[in-house]
C-alpha cells in the first residue's frame, strides 16, 4: 500500500540567490527509502534535479543529505522512519560544504584535510596489532555527515572538523612511517581539538560507528597530558619547541 508523501527538496544552482524549496508529491511505500523517492522525482517529475548516489547499500557515502534537518544516508533511510502517510519530508544538502547544485555538495575540503592528517584510510599495509583496536575508524566511508552535523563547523570554516580529527587520532595511534609531528601540530591548533564543544553530533549521525567524537576525546587526552609533561620539559611538545 503506497503512501503519499510530499518531498520539499532544496533547489539551488551555483550563484542562484536565494535558493528555494520545490514541492513534489510522491507515491511511495513505507518500506522504500528516501533515495527511492528522490530517484522517482528525477525519473518522472523533474529531470533537472541533481543528487549524488552510487551503491544503494550504505558503503559509498555519496547519497548523504539532510532529511528533516538531520544527516542521513538516504539509501538506507526508510520512509516509515522519517514521515507518515500524507506527511512531509524536507530534503536538503549537507551543511558546511560549498553547494554545487541542489543536493550535491563539494566534499573536497574534507578530503584535503584527510590528506593533511596522513590519510589513514588508504593504507599500504594491513592493520598491526589486535584488530579490535583498529576497527572503528577504518569503517569511515567519508560521507561528510559528521562535518555537516557538527555545530562547531557551523561557526568556523577553519575548524579541522570531526572526520579529519578522527583521522589524525588514528594516524597518531598508528603512524606507519608518517611523520606525526605535523599532525600533532594540526591537532593542537586553535581550530582543532580545543575548538570541539563535545556536542557528540558527529557520532550521533555517523552511519558506520566511526566514533569521531571518541577520537577527538582521545586526542584531547593525549594533548592535555603532553601539555602537562611539557611544563617539565618532557614529551613531544617540549621537543618540538627545540626543533
Amino acid at each position: 500500500m503506497a503512501w503519499q508523501v510530499q518531498f520539499r527538496v532544496f533547489r539551488s544552482s551555483r550563484g542562484e540567490v536565494p535558493a528555494h524549496f520545490d514541492p513534489f508529491t510522491v507515491e511511495i511505500k513505507p518500506d522504500e527509502t528516501v533515495l527511492d523517492g528522490i530517484e522517482r522525482i528525477w525519473a518522472f517529475q523533474d529531470r533537472t534535479l541533481t543528487f549524488r548516489h552510487a551503491c544503494h547499500h550504505a558503503s559509498c557515502g555519496s547519497c548523504a543529505m539532510r532529511v528533516n534537518g538531520v544527516e542521513k544516508l538516504s539509501c538506507v533511510t526508510y520512509i516509515q522512519d522519517v514521515t507518515s502517510d500524507g506527511g512531509t519530508l524536507v530534503v536538503e544538502p549537507l551543511r558546511n560544504f560549498p553547494i554545487v547544485s541542489d543536493l550535491v555538495v563539494d566534499v573536497s575540503p574534507m578530503f584535503h584535510r584527510m590528506h593533511e592528517v596522513g590519510m589513514p584510510i588508504i593504507r599500504s599495509a594491513e592493520p598491526l596489532g589486535k584488530p579490535e583496536n583498529f576497527n572503528c575508524f577504518e569503517n569511515c566511508i567519508e560521507c561528510g555527515m559528521c562535518v555537516s552535523a557538527c555545530p562547531v563547523m557551523l561557526t568556523s570554516n577553519q575548524y579541522l572538523g570531526p572526520a579529519a580529527l578522527a583521522a589524525a587520532q588514528r594516524t597518531i595511534a598508528e603512524p606507519r612511517g608518517v611523520d606525526v609531528r605535523s599532525i600533532w601540530q594540526l591537532a593542537d591548533d586553535e581550530n582543532s581539538v580545543w575548538r570541539c564543544h563535545t556536542a557528540f553530533e558527529c557520532g550521533e549521525v555517523c552511519p558506520s560507528n566511526g566514533d569521531p567524537a571518541g577520537a577527538i576525546m582521545a586526542l584531547r587526552r593525549r594533548l592535555i597530558l603532553e601539555r602537562i609533561k611539557s611544563l617539565f620539559g618532557r614529551g613531544i611538545l617540549a621537543r618540538q619547541r627545540g626543533g
Binding site: 553547494i99 557551523l154 561557526t155 556536542a199 557528540f200 553530533e201 567524537a213
Partner: peptide, 25 residues
C-alpha cells in the same frame, strides 16, 4: 583545504538550536 562556505551570522549562533538533535547537542 578550507571549507569555503561563506559564514553567515545565523550560522554563528546556530549552536543554540538543538531541535531534532542528540542529547550531547
Amino acid at each position: 583545504g578550507q571549507h569555503n562556505t561563506a559564514l553567515r551570522w545565523g550560522d554563528s549562533v546556530r549552536w543554540f538550536d538543538a531541535r531534532r538533535r542528540g542529547l550531547g547537542m
